[in-house]
Design a protein around this nucleic acid. Structure first.
Lengths: 361, 361
DNA sequence: CTGTTAGCGCCTTCAG
DNA sequence: CTGAAGGCGCTAACAG
């Protein structure tokens, strides 16, 4: 038997529903149902309840409520890394949207590790949340897909997990690739580097497709050198950029498929005394960092992170409400933000060799 | 009476404690207490329980547990803005620390608005969390202090709320000011600008104190021009920097007390064709952005955000555990990261006039 | 070590 | 609109 108050310091006498009922002279059931909107009451009675609530500063105990109702009015958000500006923006957007819709939010970070992802999926999915917003940043061999299937209400954001039947919200990656290629081609570049993220990841595959197909169908003799690596981080971007810049015949322009990657390119260029945009033109992807303050200010494909977040919340809530899962992913539009990192190649080379048009693994 | 399973799709038959008890041939009480560590059992019995748990994939219902125990094993984190890299890093650090200590985390953003802060304080503090990590970014007139006092277990991070008796963890702001001043003075600057954040905020006051006292006690004839504004954002930083740069007698060096502010200075300098570090030296504060990739790479006082977060979690857990509130704030060390935005003033001016040594409001 | 018995605070019937 | 009763799943106290 509990003798003392459950709250820490016993500072507030824990006002319960029955206190409101007593104060307003009504029954517990009436107050409960009124507060939950399942009972209409004459204005006067309603007012009495509201006054009592205000007077006593009553707040329903969320745990009791969740236990009783069997749902939590909470959604979970699982991201690889909160400190990454891209995900920070996403978390922020989701938080706003969730607050707007009156649902609580639980945030977890997984360091992009499968074990963490599996753990959080089963933990949150079980009883903590009514549904999950999930974003991963690595390719899946099926383990993730199964875990997600087991959980139930989850929507995929930003990256796909093949084989999962779930609502999905993605950026127009293909279009981003097209925009980047068109922009670089229009500036006169014929030897282009694609610096992609993890192989097999939807974003990499789609952005490359858009990029490569645009180049091919341009009718020009342009060529692509393809680099891909395990992460979207700056270190890998720098490595790839250095390899590319030190090639016998370096590209005159690069498309870096994340901000971080582009920062890596910048670092590589600085290290190798390659000047932008004179010696190398650069288009980034994401546009979440202070790209406009770099020198040169970086031209980029902007990804509407905030929109991905808010659409995701909407999709999840719909899903929880039992609406059918849309066949196709929801696509949010990207746009080209032109700044100053793209210029006409200084010493245009003719392109006769054909050593590097390659596909995505 | 509930007839169907409480979970959405009735996918899992909801395994409860009593199922584990039955499966392992023990009583509910024994299993419960064993699982909570309040009961030692012979290895063999223990194993039976563990096996049953694994077999049934049992996970205690958190809501039932919280309702029953009267505590949540959850802490809340309230920040002004998740998208800001500084707070994103903080959220990340807190999330890690919380996970390490086995406690859940609830994150809220307030847009730095008092009304939101009050709302979240009372909401989270009430039943959602056992304790709160709170960070604000504006001066308080007493309303915040009272709300925090009402809530109980909260620890203040990064900025103070005067009049609150709570554990606090702050950066060595004063020392940061000292380091910046020493560095600038050593480079030969005699006319220094202090571009601070909101007046009255601990960080502004302390950083200015350290800066100004170092300048004064340097014995040199150095002067300070003080600018302060309502926010730590880039726009305000740019305004302040423009005012300063267009003054009759502009400073040759500036100390911007946040990354954002420093970015604003960069923008202002670009706009007014002031070159760094030739015409203007700059020291930033925070060092959470990609300052090393700007041009010039920015020298900065690095604030150990991650440490603030993890210390905060520790302090909060101690506080919840009933340990006495430390008299003094815990201070985490800052350090000067030297890069390339500070140089000897190009055309050193003699300083005879005395028009701008001012104090903090 | 076990079983029983009360709750935790709320929601939801159901009969009145 | 009321009042009573059952249940959500778990913890804690007590007697054995």
């Amino acid at each position: 038997m509990r003798t003392q108050n459950s709250r820490s310091g016993a500072r507030q006498p824990t006002v319960r529903l029955r206190d409101v009922a007593r104060e307003s002279g009504l029954s517990v059931a009436a107050v409960s149902r009124f507060l939950n909107g399942t009972l209409d009451l004459p204005p006067d009675t309603a007012r009495r309840i509201k006054e009592a609530v205000a007077l006593l500063n009553y707040r329903p105990n969320p745990h009791a409520r969740r236990l009783s109702r069997g749902r939590t009015d909470t959604i979970g958000l699982i991201v690889p890394d909160i400190a990454n500006p891209f995900f920070a923006l996403l978390v922020d957007a989701v938080e706003r949207a969730a607050e707007e819709r009156g649902t609580d939010l639980l945030v977890c970070a997984t360091r992009n590790r499968l074990s963490h992802e599996l753990h959080e999926l089963s933990r949150l999915g079980r009883d903590y949340a009514d549904g999950l917003l999930f974003v991963t940043n690595h390719a899946d061999d099926g383990a993730l897909a199964q875990a997600i299937g087991d959980v139930g209400k989850v929507v995929l954001l930003d990256e796909d997990v093949p084989g999962v039947e779930a609502p999905r919200v993605f950026a127009e990656n293909y279009r981003g690739g097209v925009l980047a290629a068109e922009h670089l081609l229009a500036a006169g570049h014929r030897r282009l580097a694609f610096l992609g993220g993890p192989r097999g990841l939807l974003s990499t595959v789609e952005r490359f497709s858009g990029f490569a197909e645009t180049v091919r169908s341009s009718g020009s003799s342009a060529q692509i050198v393809f680099e891909s690596y395990d992460d979207y981080g700056a270190a890998q971007g720098q490595d790839a950029a250095e390899r590319m810049l030190q090639a016998a015949w370096p590209a005159t322009a690069a498309f870096a498929t994340s901000d971080e990657t582009a920062l890596g390119v910048l670092a590589a260029a600085r290290k190798l005394s390659v000047r932008l945009p004179t010696d190398l033109s650069l288009v980034a992807f994401d546009d979440v960092g202070p790209l406009h303050l770099l020198s040169p200010p970086l031209t980029a494909i902007r990804q509407p992170v905030a929109e991905i977040g808010s659409c995701g919340v909407g999709a999840l809530l719909d899903h929880i409400a039992g609406q059918p899962v849309p066949e196709q992913p929801r696509r949010v539009p990207v746009e080209l933000i032109e700044r100053a990192s793209v210029a006409t190649p200084s010493r245009p080379r003719s392109t006769t060799r054909n050593k590097a048009v390659s596909g995505v693994a």
